[in-house]
Write a protein that binds this DNA or RNA. Structure first.
Lengths: 182, 182
DNA sequence: CTTAAACTGGACGGACCGTCTCGTTTGCTA
DNA sequence: TAGCAAACGAGACGGTCCGTCCAGTTTAAG
């Protein structure tokens, strides 16, 4: 049970380090030095730099209200486009992107982190979208939410193609067609 | 320019090591020892274990014919379901999964590898699917191919939900609905 | 004031890193 | 077949980071 003061110092350190240097360069010794904390203190609470980073992201998202805001203007297509643009903006935000990629990499080799990530960051997002779809009359909201989110994530993950406005519009149109709603 | 004999020894070593131990545990020294090769020889040709692993996967896929086999029975839904099942089988094959996850993690921090991965492994796959869709009368084959593949990859990547037969069928149905083909 | 938990600072053996040197093998070419 | 250059094996090097340990200090709560 780290004290709150210690936690925030560590969170601040790991976030700044993750931003300014390359992903995967994080070391326990580096974080300890930056945070002005002994290694012992780190190992008491976290097993790895990935865990620290994840914890820091969670704390930050909790600070910033946390809840996902899904627009509801009445027009489903417009709302989905807005949501896509917002998601893309978050994924490609220079402040966030390296951190998210680090966590994504970490998830591949750490089942525990993957579960936390799913439950605490991904699930709320999907539920928000799913709810909006249900309100819009979609009969299979969970499946359609996945169909909506997956290609965005796919493009981001594999850096396959750019996120231009035309693609967003086309994508939303395809998803709505799959959902059998005008 | 490593000799062919050396290359295959190294490929064999990195593949076996990646299988039997955890992802990210790979080390240059470990690979060198397993391959019966000096570290110098590794560093002469590859900059990192990720690069070695990727090279090995490429070589293997080239050996095994490489080309993606997309079924074409005349029935698009049936073919897509078969393709989904085959893709899922490959992603979850105990022989392949750790390797693919290692490469996925590596891609997050290595733009060069990401580009190679896209061009040499992902693009052929997508083109194969895209061609089949075009033959099936889909007007936007590239977009639909992405819509088809992304959720499969999404589930695999985030280990979010199981790949049961019911989901595959539903997924294919959704994708076909989005493609405006019966 | 007392006390237990949390913390600092530093030392430790060990694993890998990436680079270097030196002597040997390999395979092509004259 | 003799020679030569490229590729290789072996292993030493200083360095970074790992994860754990200890002894002494600070913090916060009763």
């Amino acid at each position: 049970m780290a004290r709150q003061r210690t936690r925030s110092k560590v969170h601040e350190a790991v976030l700044s380090l993750a931003c300014e240097s390359r992903v995967g360069t994080l070391t326990m010794e580096g974080v300890a030095a930056r945070a002005g904390v002994s290694k012992q203190t780190l190992y008491r609470t976290w097993p790895s730099t990935g865990a620290i980073l994840f914890d820091a992201l969670l704390a930050r998202s909790a600070d910033e209200g946390g809840d996902v805001v899904v627009p509801d203007s009445g027009n489903l297509a417009t709302d989905l486009e807005g949501l896509a643009v917002a998601t893309i903006a978050e994924l490609t935000d220079p402040t966030q992107e390296p951190l998210l990629r680090a966590v994504t990499a970490e998830i591949q080799s750490n089942e525990g982190l993957a579960a936390q990530f799913r439950e605490m960051l991904l699930a709320p997002q999907l539920h928000g979208i799913s709810d909006r779809l249900r309100r819009g009359g979609v009969t299979d909201p969970d499946g359609i939410a996945e169909l909506f989110v997956a290609p965005i994530f796919h493009r981001w993950l594999l850096r396959s193609r750019p996120f231009d406005a035309a693609w967003v519009a086309t994508h939303v149109a395809r998803v709505l067609r799959a959902s059998s709603v005008s």
